[in-house]
Write a protein that binds this DNA or RNA. Structure first.
Lengths: 343, 343
DNA sequence: TTGTACGCGTTATCAT
DNA sequence: ATGATAACGCGTACAA
């Protein structure tokens, strides 16, 4: 296929001006201050733009203006519905502010995350939202100090150097286990890992607190650890639970997230167990697949959309408000009880 | 608003040059042709860059060079694992080419899609991959003709104006139904919709062809239509099937995608049916949740990663190779038989 | 109301 | 090896 007279280098304002028989500034006015230009010439210019297929060059605009019309969310795992739901919440706020939202998937790999952050900083995006592999990395603060607004999503930072938005995972763990205790369970497994993940630590923490406060012996809160929060790991944990002697086997499991819970559920059904009579299961996140599971899953719901929306608002404030002050917002989770614990 | 010492307007090459006591060009050389500069001065410049927190301005680079280091994928539904898997395939190729991949979620809304495409075109991204709401929209061709390489993903275009990468959905439908016929089913439901979706049409088409070629009467291939390809719609379809008289009730269902199949499966289990004895189920896409379902789902697998990888390669070729010719690549799907049909 | 000129940060070319 | 300069496309003062 022939391209014609070379590569059709896109038309610039200059070309439009020439075609419309006006000056450069007039074209610019048509674009940015249409009121300052007579109707007749405006139409003529618009006509020329259409004919030439004129497309604004955002690089030039941005270079000139110093700011972009873009927000970005660097997410930990684009394949986990929890994060895509958070992204949907961000998008709502971005759309309202007239900004485009770009999603970047770090896939939990620290070097991809770093690569995206660099790229975005060089692009001078208006703000970066990030669920980082390591929320305490110094590089995030450095990035913010060089001038790009940064908000940490779904992780809390100890210090006040950055905004962050998260959900109280200790409370979440507590809710899950209190519910199981209420339902009469006295031998419970916590399924999840690795413990390097902050959420896993916090949820287990909350579980232990609830357990202790109910006066139950620590040894009856079994920890079944996994190497990742995936469906496959949930299955494998299920197999390990099935291998326990009847005396040691828990009557309920609290999983660190819904993916693990779904895997465990699947394995349990394969083993012929009835849910919740032989094993009650609680998940975490309340992703849509949780309700859609073969046995609808009791789960700890996080306000995913709110999380995203709030994070976006904070980053916009940091970007536009000179008086901005960093905040650490913490939402409350909520238990959603379904058939996997209610029978 | 005064900028003062408050807003740390990021340092430019000029600032670096001043700080290092060299000229502008030398700094540029350090960045782009380090070999042409003496070790001593190079170190001095690098030192200055570090001290000033210098960050390359991508807008300026791009304005100057005319090309960006970015690819974008405008996806139909970021919450559907199928598309995130396609995105993962794209990312592989993008990473290999040293490009960043930005994901944009149109969420099946035509105005969001348009907004993203405009934004990306204005950014002069190196290429756009898109799974469009309407693959036959003229705007896509117009976009490409103005100079941005565009590849349509998971949809075929009749004409040759664009590259496209897709999977043979007619064949997929055929495979699914042939499998069911092989397993002895003589009354089958096709579950999916709306028929405005190209994939739905094609898969049903293939199903009908296989049915006819086996000499089976058309009336025994029931169409249970849904208004979207979601889990909720699958459940609702399941309820409708349960409402049929025993005589009319199908012994198997072929669903237009896995989300629908999972919903149907859930509803079937709630109704107390045994799978596959009371109802065999075939899904489409073979997303990870399919294997993880309570009854592992037989599904038609699409080469998701390959789809993405190939699409990325085409867009890169179009962007870099002057002799590029548009192609319509079509992959073959493959049936993965699991417990939901094998018992 | 319309036109002119300059600068945003970077890179490549040319001269030193 | 290093330095000066023009150009990329746009927006905006300022001049006409």
């Amino acid at each position: 296929m022939t391209v014609g007279p070379g590569t059709p280098r896109s038309a610039s304002v200059k070309d439009v001006a020439a075609a419309a028989g006006v000056s450069l500034g007039t074209v610019s006015n048509v674009l940015n201050r249409p009121d300052r230009v007579s109707d007749a010439t405006r139409r003529r210019v618009e006509q020329a733009m259409a004919e030439l297929g004129f497309v604004r060059n955002e690089s030039a605009r941005q270079l000139r203006a110093g700011r972009s019309h873009t927000l970005a969310y660097v997410m930990l795992d684009a394949g986990n519905p929890f994060f895509t739901d958070v992204a949907a919440g961000i998008e709502l706020a971005a759309e309202a502010a007239g900004l485009a939202l770009f999603l970047c998937n770090s896939d939990s790999r620290i070097e991809r995350e770093a690569s995206y952050l660099t790229h975005l900083e060089q692009q001078r995006v208006q703000g970066i939202l990030v669920t980082p592999v390591d929320p305490d990395a110094a590089s995030l603060v450095a990035l913010a100090q060089r001038g790009t607004p940064v908000v940490v999503v779904d992780r809390v930072r100890r210090e006040q150097a950055l905004c962050s938005v998260a959900v109280d995972d200790v409370l979440g763990g507590r809710l899950a286990v209190e519910h199981l205790i209420d339902r009469g369970h006295r031998r419970v497994a916590f399924v999840g890992g690795p413990p390097t993940i902050g959420q896993v630590r916090d949820r287990l923490d909350g579980a232990r607190k609830a357990w202790a406060e109910a006066g139950l012996p620590g040894k009856d809160l079994l920890v079944v650890s996994s190497s990742a929060l995936t469906v496959a790991e949930g299955r494998s944990a299920g197999a390990r639970i099935a291998g326990l002697t009847a005396r040691r086997r828990p009557t309920a499991a609290f999983c660190a997230n819904d993916l693990v819970a779904l895997g465990l559920l699947q394995q349990a059904i394969r083993s012929g167990w009835r849910i919740p009579d032989d094993l009650a299961i609680v998940g975490y996140d309340d992703i849509d697949f949780a309700e859609a599971a073969a046995v609808p899953l009791t789960s700890v719901r996080q306000p995913r959309h709110e999380l995203g929306r709030m994070a976006a608002e904070l980053v916009l404030d940091e970007s536009g408000n000179p008086e901005h002050e960093h905040q650490q917002v913490v939402f409350q989770p909520e238990l959603v009880a379904r058939a996997s614990t209610l029978g």
